[in-house]
Amino acid sequence: MEVPRYWRLQKQRYALVGEICPHCQVKIFPPRDVCPECGGEAKQPFSFSGKGTVFSFTTMYDAPKGFEMNTPYTVALVKLEEGPVVTAQLTDLGEQPVEIGMPVEMVTRRIREDEEDKGIIVYGYKFRPVMAGTH
């Protein structure tokens, strides 16, 4: 990933910062400055809670470039509590089987590394099964 692009996307990738539409109150992720619901201008940042459920998922055995070292890994469509659906890796599954409807929570993790040990480390959101004791 190019460094400037990574830097531009940092806020949304590190902490699920999207937008809220000041006209119709819809929560928007990823941020796009125009509300997909009402078409109004929406630039007000909104931090998502990170809570959601697995809408659907698949397991990757043949990974795209930059992700080869992590196979096999699970990618899911996660429906956030506030509405939007995001695509993200699931992590910290251990022996836990993934199920549709499973409650998950956002964590910030290493997504990939560029140029082996020389490039930048790309951090971003993943989701894990909700931890016991989380309130």
Binding site: N70, Q89, T108, R109, R110, I121
Partner: peptide
């Protein structure tokens, strides 16, 4: 730590 963890990610949590 898992494959996708380091001192930055653990510190964030």
């Amino acid at each position: 730590a898992g494959l996708d963890e380091d001192v930055a990610t653990m510190s964030i949590e």
